[in-house]
Each structure stands twice: as structure tokens, then as C-alpha cells.
């Protein structure tokens, strides 16, 4: 009853998000004096299971045919069954698309309470409390969950990983009695070009905003700069909504929450909803014509100039310095 159950979806490797989730789960389990249980849904996750087992007490792989590929309803049925059998005190998930889609419904089926986008989870007396940003990052709230289990999806990448244990936890395969729910079915999956490497995993990000002025400069100016820095490209909501770049590039409260070592914001004003997506970046730097642009309030260093003048010169300087 004091156990913590982490839910993951099958992936080829133990990425920063999964590591953060396992780390958060391990620490919460220690605080509650319970075990850390892991559940992985989907096929092809043996390598991931082996990695998770170095942190968790037990790992359950649910990879039977009906669950091989993510389908919302079937997957939810499986997770409700798996978590239900384990009666944990808390269920933790990451903040990927599928976890966010499922978490509130999972809480409902388990009779618990959900809260999302958590940056901290703590035990206070009998209650579990979760810290999260609200009002587009302008404020921070502490939410107290009233029902059990607490189902929390986390900004997993900003949680520290846990140390590997001396002995790996046991890995078992679940054999669930589950019917495929065909009311909804994913009939097509498409990866966005450049979406191969995940923005959330990027160590350097070059990002453009409304001030870029159109799709072309992303290609002609920002892309060569990103290549030079080994960076991934991103954009503000304004640039995505204008159709200049794909929506998968969007960083902010409603886009990706990123955690790079360096976030270079170019012609981005830095509305709070955008800043909410980069609050965990180690260093923010900005190029903007307006010295009062809010992004500078969060930047370690900046330059007040037109990016059209700065970026070509910056590429030259960086190339020379890297030589």
C-alpha cells in the first residue's frame, strides 16, 4: 500500500525521461517506505526492462500481441489492471503524449486523483503534494491530492536519475486477459522530419520566434547555426502557429518542456507561456532587438541587435573559435 508504481511505454532505450521517472519513483518509494514497482507496456522493451530493473524492485513487461503497439483504450485497460492489482500509494508517469493522454483516466479507474506536469512530489503527513507551474509559468502551485492512489505525470527529464542497485529487480511478463478495444484505433503514424532525435533530449537548442519573420530564415540562417553547434531546432508558439515550422518544434507551456545545457532564443520575446517550457534549461541566451524583451530577464547573457545581422557573423566567429 506504500508502493510506488512507475508506468512506461516501450522504447528502445533508457532515455533521460525514463531515468528521471525511475529516479523520482525510487526517492518517493523511499520516503513512503515502500517498494518501487515498474510496469512497461508495449513490445520490444527487453533492453529498457533490464535497465529499469537496476533501479526498481520489480519490473513487469506487458508486451502481449494486443499491447504490442500503443492504442489508447487497450493500453489504458492494461494499465488499470496492472496498477489495480498492485494497489500502489502512487502511480508516476512521464509527460510524453501517451502518458498525458492516459493519466487522468487511469486515476479515475483506480479511484484516485491525478495531477500533471509535476516538478516535485513530496509526502506531507498523510498527503501527497505535487508542485507544478500554473498560469503559463507565471505562478507555482502546490496541489494536495485527496484520493489514493495519487497518479502523477512528471516533467520527468528534470528529475535526477537514481543510483543503480547492487542487485537487479526481478523482471516478469504479464499475461493479461484483455480484449482489444476497437472503438478507436491508430491507423497511421508519421514521424516529423528531424524528429528522430528528441528535442527533450537535446543538449543545445537553437530556437526562433515571431521576429524571425517567415519560414525561410529558419532554413537559411538558423539551421546552419544549429548544425555548427550540434544543436536541435525549436520555435515559439507564434512561429509554429504561423506554419513556418512544424508544430513538433513548439517549446512552451503547451509545447515541449526542454532541459538543454544551452537554449539560444533568437527573436523570441519570451512570453511566460514560452518561458514555462525552458525553465529547466541550464543556460538561456538571447538575441533580440528589444532590450526590454522578457526573455532577457531569464538569460545568462544576451545581445541587443537584429538577428539578421548577428547570426551570419556569429556563425563565422563560432567556426573560427571551434577550429
Amino acid at each position: 500500500m506504500n508502493d510506488v508504481c512507475i508506468c512506461l511505454f516501450a522504447a528502445p532505450n533508457f532515455d533521460k525521461s525514463a531515468q528521471g521517472l525511475a529516479g523520482a519513483g525510487r526517492r518517493l518509494a523511499a520516503e513512503l517506505d515502500g517498494q518501487l514497482l515498474a510496469v512497461i507496456v508495449g513490445a520490444g522493451a527487453d533492453a529498457l526492462a533490464a535497465e529499469v530493473a537496476r533501479i526498481a524492485d520489480t519490473v513487469t513487461l506487458a508486451d502481449q500481441a494486443e499491447l504490442a503497439e500503443y492504442q489508447p483504450e487497450t493500453c489504458l485497460n492494461a494499465l488499470a489492471q496492472l496498477c489495480g492489482e498492485r494497489s500502489p500509494r502512487a502511480v508516476l508517469l512521464a509527460n510524453d503524449t501517451y502518458s498525458q493522454e492516459i493519466a487522468p483516466r487511469l486515476a479515475y479507474r483506480l479511484g484516485g486523483s491525478a495531477v500533471g506536469d509535476g516538478v516535485e512530489v513530496r509526502v506531507e503527513g498523510e498527503a501527497l503534494r505535487v508542485v507544478r507551474q500554473v498560469y503559463g509559468g507565471k505562478a507555482q502551485a502546490v496541489i494536495e491530492l485527496k484520493r489514493t492512489p495519487a497518479v502523477v505525470w512528471l516533467r520527468a527529464r528534470s528529475f535526477a536519475p537514481a543510483a543503480e542497485r547492487a542487485e537487479s529487480g526481478e523482471i516478469t511478463r504479464a499475461a493479461l486477459d484483455i480484449q482489444a478495444d476497437t472503438r478507436t484505433r491508430i491507423v497511421e503514424r508519421k514521424r516529423e522530419a528531424g524528429g528522430e532525435a528528441r528535442l527533450e533530449e537535446a543538449r543545445v537548442i537553437v530556437s526562433g520566434g515571431r521576429g524571425i519573420g517567415g519560414p525561410e530564415p529558419f532554413e537559411s540562417e538558423l539551421k546552419p547555426l544549429a548544425e555548427l553547434l550540434g544543436a536541435q531546432m525549436a520555435a515559439s508558439r507564434a512561429a509554429c502557429d504561423a506554419g513556418w515550422v512544424p508544430p513538433t518544434w513548439q517549446v512552451g507551456q503547451t509545447g515541449k518542456k526542454v532541459t538543454p545545457e544551452l537554449y539560444l532564443g533568437i527573436a523570441i520575446t519570451g512570453a511566460s507561456q514560452h518561458m514555462a517550457g525552458i525553465s529547466e534549461a541550464k543556460v538561456i541566451a538571447a538575441i533580440n532587438t528589444d532590450p526590454d524583451a522578457p526573455i532577457f530577464k531569464h538569460s545568462r547573457f544576451g545581445i541587443v541587435e537584429d538577428y539578421r545581422k548577428v547570426v551570419p557573423l556569429l556563425r563565422e566567429k563560432l567556426a573560427a573559435l571551434q577550429r
Binding site: S113, A139, I143, K146, R147, G302
Partner: peptide
């Protein structure tokens, strides 16, 4: 009955930007 807001605050988190 689902959850309560226990605290709400504006975080003080400003960095001093060095303009090159």
C-alpha cells in the same frame, strides 16, 4: 474532493542578464 490547491505563489527567479 479530487484535489486542493494548498499553496499558490509567484516564484522569484530572475537572472541578471549580461549584455555583451
Amino acid at each position: 474532493t479530487y484535489y486542493d490547491v494548498a499553496e499558490l505563489a509567484i516564484p522569484q527567479k530572475e537572472t541578471r542578464c549580461e549584455f555583451v
